[in-house]
Amino acid sequence: MDITVSHRLYNSFGGHKSISLVSALLEYEMPDFGDAIQEIDITVHFYHDGPARNTLEKMQEEFHKNLEKLPKCTFSRKKQRLSLEIEGKFTTGYEIERNKKPLIQVNPAWVKATLEEIIGFAPIINPKIKKTDNFDFPAFEVYLNSTLSTIPDDVEELENIRDIVAQRRKEAFNKLDDWKKLGLDWEDYHPKAREVVPIPNQWSCADEFSPNGSDTGADTLEIFRKWNKRNGNNSTLIFLAKLLRDWEIDINDPYQSEYSSYTYFQTVTGLAFASAKIRGKCEQELKDKAVAAINEYLGSIEDKTGWEYKNECKEKLHQSKQTIEKMPNKEFSGVSIALNPKL
């Protein structure tokens, strides 16, 4: 079973040297509790008792309102994933931010306090487990308490456990095939998506040269996902026009500047793949725009002789072109973005 412990502040989310170390402690000598739950994601939220950063006052207010709705536990039986969101009371968001500099070191007291908070809220997990689920919650609760009682006070010992578990995870990850390494939930995509986009790297969210791996490409995918829920029968070109307008790019003249050209290239290419991944197809006019944008970008980097990633970039762009050209398409009639730029 994989356990992830993260922290959330009003303006940030992610791992923390002390708070997230609880993940490694729990996985270090964890016995088998059954296969009904394969992943547990725990997020510890912290009240921020200091002033919000400029322009983030509303964000802080909304965050504090959401704190009042905690704790929250959700269990996806089909995905074998349990999520636990709790509020941490042993410190504040302000203190966490204040201790970021100099570089934060492992704090054994915070490690223990995090696990104590988790143990305090663990009982809300039990009602989510059915008698028919193969998961021994009483044994899991006993294990949480026994782990707490054996947490070392020595920072070096804690870091050693963290490093051992990290190495185990790395070795397990390296054994996975390229598709499983992506860690994607395929229920979020079209059933035929992997046939339409058959190269694992083209699903990467971390590779800058992947269609949805850059910041712009990733944003395009996620914004389109939300838009598509209410506009599943509408042309993706309507979405493209609106998104480019929001990003101050002229769809009819996108090559006005280096910024405009690059943003347009990443957006239209990212959308072609977003459509294929979520709808299972990409309409022909969008395919044509994406291929043309790739060709334009390939031409723009041809003279960059000193760029060390040039060959890798070119190779992946040619792969993207081939994938786009093979995507099934569906024509949408009655829509002309060039004539209707305000759509």
Rank of each mutant, 00 (worst) to 15 (best):
G217I: 00
D163T: 12
A276W: 01
Y47Q: 12
S204M: 03
E68K: 15
A293E: 02
N295C: 10
E68F: 07
L298W: 05
W247C: 06
P200T: 04
S6P: 07
M1N: 03
R162W: 09
P127V: 01
N99L: 11
S260N: 13
T43E: 14
C282A: 08
E315N: 11
S257D: 11
G270Y: 00
K229Q: 15
A24Y: 06
C73Y: 01
A24S: 15
E308T: 10
T150Y: 07
A24P: 03
L25S: 01
I324G: 00
Q105V: 09
Y259L: 15
K175I: 06
E97T: 08
K277F: 01
S20G: 15
Y309N: 14
H48Q: 11
T91R: 00
D154M: 11
S235W: 01
L243G: 01
I199N: 13
S18D: 03
K89N: 10
T323N: 09
P191T: 05
A276F: 03
K180D: 15
R162S: 12
E85A: 02
D41K: 10
P138M: 06
R8I: 10
V44M: 10
K229R: 13
S210H: 03
A122D: 01
I337Y: 08
N145K: 15
Y94E: 15
Q256K: 15
K287C: 04
S83Y: 08
V196D: 00
E95D: 15
K287N: 07
S18E: 02
L244Q: 03
D163Y: 11
P200D: 05
S333T: 13
L70P: 00
L182W: 04
C205K: 09
E331S: 05
V335L: 12
K78P: 03
F209E: 09
D250C: 09
L158C: 06
K316A: 06
S23D: 01
V44R: 01
S320I: 08
T269E: 13
A290I: 04
A292V: 08
A166L: 12
G93C: 04
H16E: 12
L271N: 02
Y255R: 09
N126C: 12
Q256C: 12
A172V: 10
V335H: 04
E296F: 09
L67E: 06
T269G: 07
I151P: 01
L298G: 07
Q38L: 13
R230C: 14
I249T: 10
E248D: 15
L343R: 09
R77M: 08
Y10Q: 01
E296R: 12
D250S: 08
R81H: 13
E27W: 03
D207E: 14
G280L: 04
F63C: 03
Y94I: 08
